[in-house]
């Protein structure tokens, strides 16, 4: 079973040379720490920066340079700043190659819910609806089950949707799963996790075809 950093490490393998990548808040943010150093990748933050670097050194933080989580950041050589409309032109116009985001629920048809729990304080969707409605390559990085142990990979989402039929792949603490027209398809299992355990933790239909290899981290 993986921890959050493990999920991020496995998700980082989906980041390929030459990709422009948008990372969501939470586990996806950690992905940047595990991207191979021998490939060229640029991180986009929807508040208006491409080419995000690490957090600033103490004393060098700048109120004018933040990421979408409102954290102070730095930029790398080749970075650029732009306005919000242009930022979402990059997103809706499919210029961003990969989006990795968290979720509360994913359905076997690729629907995603990650912005609202009825009856609880709703903070808003931020840029998530634009991202999931447009990106070609959407990966969800999340825990396989919620805090009370219930599956987050469902037949259909119970929570209000963020987007429909958009998730392509899911990386969890237990498995890597592809979303196919026939439902969830198990691709890899986490170290020390059996196929039976994954089946048990997945409410939606899970296709298990042949031998399922352990993740190569």
């Amino acid at each position: 079973m993986l921890d959050k950093n493990g999920i991020a490490k496995r998700s980082a393998k989906e980041v390929k040379d030459g990709y422009y990548v948008n990372l969501g808040i939470g586990i996806p943010t950690l992905v940047a720490n595990f991207v191979r150093e021998d490939i060229e990748v640029e991180f986009q933050s929807e508040n208006g920066v491409l080419g995000m670097g690490p957090f600033p050194l103490e004393g060098e933080e700048d109120a004018d340079i933040i990421n979408a989580g409102k954290q102070t950041i730095t930029t790398l050589p080749g970075a650029s700043f732009f306005d919000s409309a242009m930022s979402f032109s990059m997103i809706r116009g499919k210029h961003v190659d990969l989006t990795i985001l968290g979720a509360m629920e994913v359905a076997e048809n690729g629907d995603i819910a990650n912005w609202k729990i009825p009856g609880k304080m709703v903070k808003g969707m931020g840029g998530a609806m634009d991202l999931v409605a447009s990106a070609e390559n959407i990966i969800v990085a999340m825990m396989h089950t919620n805090r009370v142990g219930a599956s987050k990979l469902l037949k259909s989402c119970a929570l209000p949707l963020t987007g429909v039929g958009c998730v392509k792949k899911i990386v969890t603490n237990m498995a890597v799963i592809e979303v196919t027209p026939a439902g969830f398809k198990l691709l890899e299992r986490a170290p020390g996790v059996s196929v039976d355990e994954i089946i048990k933790a997945t409410e939606g239909h899970l296709i298990v075809d042949g031998d399922i290899l352990e993740m190569n981290l």
């Binding site: 690490p54 957090f55 600033p56 050194l57 103490e58 004393g59 060098e60 933080e61 109120a63 004018d64 933040i66 989580g69 409102k70 954290q71 102070t72 950041i73």
Partner: peptide, 12 residues
């Protein structure tokens, strides 16, 4: 004022 909402830094 230019307040910072989430001050995140690396130690020097």
């Amino acid at each position: 004022d230019k307040r910072i909402e989430q001050r995140t830094v690396r130690p020097k």
